[in-house]
C-alpha cells in the first residue's frame, strides 16, 4: 500500500501547488467526491448554530458536502462554495441533491466585498498551501471576508498527530526547541485511482477513520494509478499561531472584547482543538 512520504517544495510555491494540488484534484475529482459525504460533528454544530439570514463562504468547498447544512432547516442560511478545482465544483453545484451556489476561485483571492459574509469555513484546505506565508495569507482572507462586527470563522487542517484508527503513517521530526513535541511536516499523501468509471461499489463504505485512503478495488484488473497530493500537516499549536499572525498582519487586537476598548477591531479565538486527526480553530471578530 502507498505511504505518506516527505515532500520537498522545489519550485515557485504557486506553480508547485498547481502541479501537486490543483491538477491532482482535477484528475481525482469524481472518485474523491464519492468518498466525501459525512460532515464532521463540530462543523455541523457550527453551521447549526447560525441565525437565519446569514450568508457564508466555504473556502475550499471540494465536493460541497457542507453546502446543504444545516439539514434540519434547509435554506435558512446560504453558504457559497469556492474551490480551485473546476471538476470538484461540478459535484459541489448539486451537493445534497439541490442547486448550490459555487464560485471558481483561489483561497488567496479576495473576490468579494470586504466583510460581506457573516461566516466562513475552510475545511481541509489551507494545508495544501506550500509556504507558511501563503497559509497565513489564506487565514487573512478568511478574516477579511467576514463582518468586522460579528463574523465567525471555522478552520480545519490535517494534524501531524494522527488518530490511532488512521491508516496513515506520518514521518515526524522532534521539535528541537521543545522536548517531546513534534513539528509540522510537508508530505505527499497518495490517492489511488482505479481507471474505471463504472459503478463505484467501494466508495460508500462507512469508515472508522474518515479521510482515510481508499483501497484498490479487487474487481478491477487494470493497474490503479497513484496520485500524490501535497500537504503541510500541522503540529499542535501551529494553527492557532497562524491565526495570531494573520490577525497581527491585519492589525486586529487578539483576545476577547472588553468594555475598556474603543474604536478597536479585534478577533477572539472561541475554541480550538484536535478532532480525529485534524486541528481546528473557531474565531469571532468584534468591533468596539
Amino acid at each position: 500500500m502507498s505511504k505518506v512520504t516527505p515532500a520537498v517544495i522545489d519550485d515557485d510555491p504557486s506553480a508547485y501547488e498547481t502541479k501537486h494540488v490543483h491538477e491532482v484534484y482535477d484528475q481525482i475529482a469524481s472518485h474523491f467526491s464519492s468518498t466525501r459525504y459525512k460532515p464532521w460533528p463540530i462543523i455541523a454544530a457550527f453551521l447549526a448554530s447560525l441565525p437565519p439570514g446569514w450568508v457564508g463562504l466555504d473556502s475550499g468547498t471540494g465536493n460541497g458536502k457542507y453546502l446543504p447544512l444545516p439539514l434540519e432547516r434547509p435554506g435558512s442560511v446560504w453558504t457559497i462554495g469556492l474551490d480551485r478545482s473546476r471538476n470538484l465544483l461540478d459535484a459541489a453545484r448539486n451537493a445534497g441533491g439541490a442547486v448550490r451556489e459555487v464560485v471558481w476561485g483561489d483561497v488567496l483571492g479576495n473576490g468579494w466585498r470586504i466583510g460581506a459574509f457573516d461566516y466562513a469555513i475552510s475545511i481541509a484546505t489551507i494545508h495544501h498551501l506550500a509556504t507558511p506565508a501563503r497559509r497565513r495569507e489564506a487565514v487573512e482572507r478568511l478574516l477579511q471576508s467576514v463582518s468586522p462586527s460579528h463574523g465567525r470563522v471555522l478552520i480545519y487542517v490535517w494534524a501531524i498527530e494522527q488518530d490511532a484508527l488512521s491508516k496513515r503513517q506520518i514521518p515526524t521530526t522532534p521539535d528541537a526547541s521543545s522536548p517531546g513535541a513534534i513539528v509540522g511536516e510537508d508530505v505527499y499523501v497518495p490517492w489511488v485511482l482505479n481507471p474505471q468509471p463504472g459503478p463505484q461499489k467501494t466508495s460508500r463504505r462507512r469508515k472508522a477513520a474518515t479521510e482515510s485512503e481508499p483501497e484498490p478495488s479487487h474487481e478491477v484488473q487494470i493497474e490503479p494509478q497513484t496520485f500524490h497530493r501535497y500537504y503541510h500537516m500541522f503540529a499542535e499549536g501551529e494553527l492557532d499561531g497562524l491565526v495570531n499572525e494573520a490577525a497581527k498582519q491585519l492589525r486586529l487586537v487578539i483576545g476577547p472584547h472588553t468594555s475598556a476598548q474603543r474604536h478597536t477591531l479585534g478577533v477572539e479565538i472561541v475554541q480550538s482543538g484536535w478532532e480525529r486527526s485534524n486541528h481546528y480553530v473557531e474565531v469571532k471578530r468584534w468591533q468596539a
Binding site: W54, V77, V99
Partner: peptide, 28 residues
C-alpha cells in the same frame, strides 16, 4: 462593485421559499 452583468443567458428555476432567511438577509 457591483460587477456589471453582460451578455447573459438566464434560466428560471424554482427554489424553496424561506421567509426567515429573507428577513434576516435583507439588512446585509
Amino acid at each position: 462593485f457591483p460587477l456589471k452583468l453582460q451578455d447573459v443567458q438566464i434560466a428560471l428555476r424554482e427554489a424553496e421559499f424561506n421567509e426567515d432567511f429573507l428577513r434576516g438577509f435583507i439588512p446585509r
